[in-house]
């Protein structure tokens, strides 16, 4: 028995995991693809017919879909962009030994591990225009109060702020770890050449950090594309459809209208965007060797 296992360890060890993935992931994904070619909808009484690409055709003719694509990218680029800049700055500030560094790192961890639903609700209260902290702060600074989540222009930035609060620390910590693993020689050479702190940063630190930052950005973008908890609890896509991302749109098609066919085609579109962006980044990275 033992011998048998040893000889066949190559497939025995990964078998349970592979079966699990097959059942829990491969089946649902293939199923989603299949459903996206059908007219399965609870409203039509549950009769399922194969309709080819009709769902995709409808999707491409629906302004709401394009709005959702736009909002998905707007949210992701805004949130991840600010997170990257802030995260790198914080990492550079923290990148030295000082009393309290441990505490600072602990604090950075907290937003990441705090339950998003609970965080979303708390921020909803901060943003409450009449009784919330956000407008109180604006007013005490002598600024114009905002409707935040109820304002078409402010809703995506307001949601992005929550994402930024939650996830900037991740980029900061990744970059911090990256800084610690940089080689010493280039910095010593720069010192000998009399480079200023800014020059060192611009010409040595950042270029060496690019690969790390890039991976951090990819990881964050994948999750930002799929953000659900916060948007669902805070605005459910509103006001109107001003904060409806693809994920929220697909949820509303699937579990609001119970039009499983249309929902599946929207999900395939979202998947294509997530996969496409990841592959594109990998390709860019490979071609430019950064």
């Amino acid at each position: 028995m033992n011998r048998f296992i040893e000889r066949n360890i190559v497939w025995i060890f990964p078998l349970p995991a592979a079966l699990f993935i097959l059942l829990m992931m491969a089946f649902p994904v293939l199923y989603t693809f299949w459903v996206s070619f059908t007219d399965w909808s609870v409203a039509s009484g549950g009769n399922v017919h194969f309709i080819g690409l009709k769902n995709y055709y409808d999707l491409l003719n629906n302004p709401r879909f394009f709005n959702a694509v736009k909002m998905t990218f707007y949210f992701t680029i805004l949130a991840v962009g600010v997170e990257t800049v802030l995260g790198v700055i914080i990492a550079l500030i923290l990148n030295r030994e000082f009393w309290g560094k441990g505490i600072a790192k602990t604090i950075l961890l907290l937003p990441m591990v705090a339950t998003p639903v609970a965080i979303g609700l708390a921020w909803t209260l901060f943003y409450e225009p009449t009784i919330g902290l956000a407008n109180y702060t604006l007013r005490s600074l002598g600024l114009q109060a905002s409707s935040w989540l109820a304002s078409r222009d402010m809703v995506v930035p307001a949601l992005a702020i929550v994402d930024i609060w939650e996830w900037t620390p991740m980029i900061a910590l990744i970059v911090l770890a990256g800084l610690a693993s940089l080689p010493v020689e280039p910095f010593e050479a720069a010192k000998v050449d009399g480079a200023s702190a800014f020059q060192t940063l611009r010409y040595i630190t950042l270029p060496l950090l690019y690969p790390t930052i890039l991976v951090a950005v990819v990881l964050r973008s994948i999750d930002a594309f799929k953000t659900f908890d916060i948007i669902y609890t805070m605005t459910a896509g509103g006001p109107g459809f001003a904060s409806e991302t693809l994920n929220i749109y697909a949820y509303s098609l699937g579990f609001g209208y119970f039009n499983f066919g249309a929902a599946s085609s929207a999900l395939v579109a979202l998947l294509a965007i997530v996969l496409g962006s990841s592959l594109l980044t990998l390709w860019v990275r490979k071609t430019w060797e950064i």
Binding site: Y127, A145, L149, G238
Partner: peptide, 8 residues
């Protein structure tokens, strides 16, 4: 109306 009525 109050501010933020479109999210109410």
């Amino acid at each position: 109306g109050p501010m933020g009525v479109t999210n109410m």
